[in-house]
Amino acid sequence: MGEARPGRMPDMPIGTGEAPEALLRRLGAAARRVETPCGEGRMAWHVWGEGEPLVLLHGGSGSWRHWVRNIGPLSRDRMLVCPDTPGLGESAMPPEAGTPAPVAAVIREGIARVLGPGRRYDLCGFSYGALLSGHVAAQAGEELRSVTLVGAGALGPKRQVTELTKVRSLEGEARIAAHRHNLAALMFADPRNIDALALAVQEWNTRHARFVSRGFAGTTGLRDAIARARCPVALIYGERDAIAWPEVELRFQALRAVQPEAWTGVIPGAGHWVAYEAAESFNAMLADMLRRRIGR
Results as ranks from 00 to 15, higher is better:
residue 104 A to P: 06
residue 105 A to M: 11
residue 105 A to F: 07
residue 105 A to G: 10
residue 107 I to S: 01
residue 109 E to Y: 06
residue 110 G to I: 00
residue 110 G to L: 06
residue 110 G to V: 05
residue 111 I to Y: 09
residue 111 I to V: 15
residue 112 A to G: 12
residue 113 R to N: 14
residue 113 R to S: 15
residue 113 R to M: 14
residue 115 L to E: 09
residue 116 G to C: 14
residue 118 G to V: 04
residue 118 G to S: 10
residue 118 G to T: 07
residue 119 R to V: 14
residue 120 R to M: 14
residue 122 D to V: 06
residue 123 L to A: 07
residue 125 G to Q: 06
residue 126 F to T: 06
residue 126 F to G: 01
residue 127 S to C: 15
residue 128 Y to T: 05
residue 129 G to H: 01
residue 129 G to T: 04
residue 133 S to N: 09
residue 133 S to C: 13
residue 133 S to V: 02
residue 133 S to Y: 03
residue 134 G to S: 12
residue 134 G to N: 05
residue 134 G to Q: 02
residue 135 H to R: 08
residue 135 H to V: 09
residue 136 V to R: 00
residue 137 A to E: 01
residue 138 A to N: 02
residue 138 A to R: 00
residue 142 E to W: 09
residue 143 E to W: 10
residue 144 L to P: 00
residue 144 L to G: 03
residue 145 R to S: 12
residue 145 R to I: 08
residue 146 S to P: 03
residue 148 T to N: 02
residue 148 T to M: 03
residue 150 V to H: 03
residue 151 G to R: 04
residue 151 G to N: 00
residue 155 L to Q: 06
residue 156 G to L: 06
residue 157 P to G: 11
residue 157 P to N: 12
residue 161 V to S: 13
residue 161 V to E: 15
residue 161 V to C: 08
residue 166 K to L: 11
residue 167 V to D: 08
residue 169 S to Y: 10
